[in-house]
């Protein structure tokens, strides 16, 4: 797979008079997993939606291989997993896969997954929350987009499903996908990420030593 680089630069976003994001910079390469941590309301989801190009803002610069994109999703360069389920509830999983994955190769690849095979005739609302999330992640990962943004993929899931998600992320990052994850589950984020960023007071900075998460008041002292 061709090595690609996603650069997110100068992202600013205001909610009313409050500066939610002030000059955010981050980058992610093919095969790299970038974990974004931050307290509730720090702007993690907003940042991911701005990177996707779905949320408008007055200042941002999204580059993929040095080419600037105003709305990267239109070029199918970036895919996004929202916090809540996005699968059409009126369709069966086999129809969803046919619609969502246009290439036959991707359809054949996803049909090798056990969780997909056993639920092909079910609709999304007939699946458990964990199964649905895992299936959504697999669908997103099989898209052609070189970069994947995941918004709280570990939220409200049991430990076994979380482990499966971790192994899916590791598998696809090895296959060359660039993955950006925002979540509060810091243990799994630390486990899966090559680089950890902390979003605080509108800025995003890289965490070199995990102890910084305590000194930055993200984790209680003594957690690490």
């Amino acid at each position: 797979m061709k090595r690609e680089v996603l650069e997110v630069d100068s992202v600013q976003y205001k909610v009313g008079d409050i500066n939610l994001l002030t000059d955010v910079y981050l980058n992610c390469s093919s095969g790299e997993v970038v974990g974004i941590l931050g307290r509730n309301g720090s702007g993690k989801s907003t940042l991911l939606q701005i990177i996707l190009g779905e949320k408008k803002t007055y200042e941002k610069n999204i580059r993929i291989n040095k080419q600037t994109y105003e709305e990267p999703f239109k070029a199918e360069k970036i895919a996004y997993l929202p916090q809540n389920s996005f699968l059409p509830i009126f369709l069966k999983l086999k129809k969803i896969i046919k619609l969502f994955l246009s290439s036959l190769e991707a359809q054949e690849a996803i049909l090798k997954e056990e969780i997909i095979i056993s639920n092909l005739d079910k609709k999304p609302d007939q699946l458990s929350g964990g199964e649905r999330k895992l299936i959504e992640i697999l669908c997103i990962m099989h898209l052609d987009a070189p970069f994947i943004l995941l918004d709280e993929p570990f939220a409200n899931l049991d430990p076994l499903i979380k482990d499966k998600i971790v192994s899916v992320l590791q598998k696809f990052s090895k296959l060359g996908k660039g993955i950006v994850i925002a979540d509060h589950d810091y243990r799994n984020i630390i486990k899966v990420s090559d680089k950890i960023m902390l979003l605080k007071s509108g800025y995003c900075r890289e965490i070199k030593d995990l102890k910084e998460l305590e000194s930055e008041n993200y984790l209680p002292f003594g957690t690490i």
Partner: peptide, 14 residues
């Protein structure tokens, strides 16, 4: 079903 728009957004349809 506002979240279902991401199904289309991920395929390049705004």
């Amino acid at each position: 079903y506002s979240n279902q728009y991401y199904f289309y957004i991920n395929k390049g349809l705004s």
